[in-house]
Amino acid sequence: MSNELLDIKKLETFFYTRAGIAKAVNGISLSVDKGEIVGIVGESGSGKSVTGFSIMGLVDPPGEIAGGSIKFKGEEIIGQTEEEWRSFRGAKVSMIFQDPMMTLNPVLRIDTQMIEAIRAHEKVSKKEARRRCVETLAMVGIPSPAERIKSYPHQFSGGMRQRVAIAIGLLNKPDLIIADEPTTALDVTIQGQILSEMQTLCRKTGMALIWITHDLTVIAGLAHKVAVMYAGKIIESGNVQEVLDEPLHPYTHGLIGSVPSRNKRGQPLYQIPGMTPSLINIPEGCSFRMRCPHADEICMKEPDETISDNGRMVRCHHPL
């Protein structure tokens, strides 16, 4: 219990739009232990990014956290004051975003953007802060960081920018980093480098990591635990190897089947028919039933979470 870092219970984050209420996160529960790497996998619109923003308290209107609880080191963080949130963000939990071209301020130098991140949480001299920044840049693999720190974002390549963003996330030695598809916009080779570096960093610092992605192959080599999201709910979770080797939910099965590398040569790729449902009218019952080959009458009823002894959870009437 003392090893538990983050504990999310029945979290609901809704977007109150003109067209209706979009239930982007619809009652998910998830826990992250210290130093653990957790993957959240899902298609676009499954609510995985909103989960990340909810933990950071960065859900913008018209969205808001409608219910549930998020405990960080045993303390409830939903309902914190704005100042409590501010000192929480970046110091206890950091977040790295998808597009490194957009996350750094284009008109401020890297050193400005790094030093301010330290000084937002600690009273240290600029000189000391700069020293730490250079150190962190070196840690994420930026060559000659003492000079490069004086550059503007546009003078870096995409991969280098993402490293800078990661370095900024690491500056205050947070307990948890939330990485929202940080390698999707990058080349495959760079992606590999960053993945392995993140893994090393976590091992070295004992930091926990939530890796949000739509790409199962990324998770396979990186995470300890995986949660698969569909239409605002976690439909399956558990140990990575177990989930990938023996998926219980037909959706997870479909996802794995549609990854090219997991198929045999010459065999047609598996496709999940149809599209993800609108978050505003999620169909009654199991939200996946429209696309599910095993769906029947009983699927009109919402399935409950079934948790097995080894911590595997699945939400399905017909687990495979």
Binding site: F15, T17, R18, A19, G20, A22, A24, S44, G45, G47, S49, V50, F53, D60, P62, G63, G274, M275, T276, P277, S278, L279, I280, N281, M290
Partner: peptide
């Protein structure tokens, strides 16, 4: 009857065409 869904992150949900 299944509508296309946009990424619900940020404000894109309020875009037209969701419903």
């Amino acid at each position: 009857d299944i509508n296309e869904v946009k990424q619900p992150d940020f404000n894109s949900v309020q875009g037209d065409g969701v419903l």
